[in-house]
Amino acid sequence: MITIKDIAKATGYGMATVSKALNDYPDISEKTKQIIKQKARELNYIPNNMGRTLVTKSSFTIGVIFEETTDYGIAHPFFSEVLAKIKTTLEQNNYDILLIGKKVGEYVRSYLEHCIQKGVDGVIVVSKIWDKDNYDKLINSKIPMVFIDHEEVNKNCVYTNSYDSIYHAVTYLYEKGHRNIAYIGGELDQIVGKERYEGYVKALEDFNLSIYPRWYLYAEKYSFENAYNAVKKLLTSDVPKPTAIVASGDVMAIGAMKAIKEHGLKVPDDISLIGFDNIRMAAYVSPALTTIAQSFEDLAKNACELLLTQIKNNNATPKKIVVPSTLVERESVKEIK
């Protein structure tokens, strides 16, 4: 098997230089990288993580943390889409991913302890961590990290502009003639939930539309079941019925769709629906769901780039990247004339 030592011998460079060049370290010139990588290809070199770790003091492993409490686990559409893009991006940079939990064997550990035990080079946090003590231990550590879909002070963060996205959704409905617009949202103590709700309220205010407190439908943890129950409760109450509902997640919109149909109403003839995320299922439900599309690829790519930059230079200034969204028009919104 060809090793870094063989490439070093063939090129005349030291083993440390060869290792850094193969892993795109910034302190190696592009010319040197090209020479070393070309020789590696000629020799059919296959990286060996154990050898790389000895030379670079790096495990070439990234820990991924997501705390998903709706029982979908990794099968949750948002997480599965983002994780797939993360995996592809990191593999292109010669990194493996490791899902980090709070339990190692028979022992319960904090996320931080698990990361240290496994020797990960950095951490990607894909959602809000609900266990505050566990969360604080992690963010107060010196492990390079990046947050997706959540904002944290003095940390790398990548997220969609939730406020503008929901404002855009309400504007779209207004332009379609809707004046009675309800909203399904999640926890307001999270930046995502708070900004999406504020975007909804601001749009109603700007268009001088009625704001009924009971038209804010709370669906805990953004789940299908909780959205279904919330809409079912609304439709069986004496509250005026909305002509449209904006859901801050496609999973919730699909739950709402089920409740509307079971009540003997039709989407969009009786109630129009807009979701958020543009998960794959959104295009295949009936009617196909109009939604605000997040770019899973951009979220994952930007997060990985920020993290890899910090791994190579832990003094790099943390950045916040806001990924734009787009409205995908399908079949779940009716124009009211």
Rank of each mutant, 00 (worst) to 15 (best):
I4D: 01
I7N: 04
K9Q: 10
G12A: 08
S19G: 10
L22C: 09
S29A: 05
S29C: 04
Q34H: 12
I35G: 02
Q38A: 15
K39V: 10
A40Y: 03
R41L: 04
E42L: 14
T53E: 10
K57G: 01
T61L: 10
T69Y: 11
Y72F: 15
A75F: 09
P77D: 05
L83F: 09
K87G: 08
T89I: 00
N93M: 04
N94L: 10
L98M: 14
K103P: 03
Y107E: 15
G119I: 09
I124W: 00
W130K: 12
K142E: 13
F147Y: 09
H150I: 08
E151N: 06
Y172D: 01
Y174R: 09
K176Y: 11
H178M: 10
G185H: 09
I191G: 05
G199P: 00
Y200E: 01
Y218D: 13
Y218I: 07
A230L: 06
L234V: 12
L234M: 07
L234D: 06
L235N: 04
I245V: 08
A247N: 03
S248D: 13
A256F: 11
A256I: 12
A259Q: 08
A259T: 13
I271V: 09
S272W: 10
S272V: 06
N278R: 02
N278M: 04
R280L: 15
M281I: 14
A293T: 06
Q294E: 11
D298L: 14
L299G: 00
A300L: 09
P318M: 11
K320H: 09
I336F: 11
I336S: 04
K337Y: 02
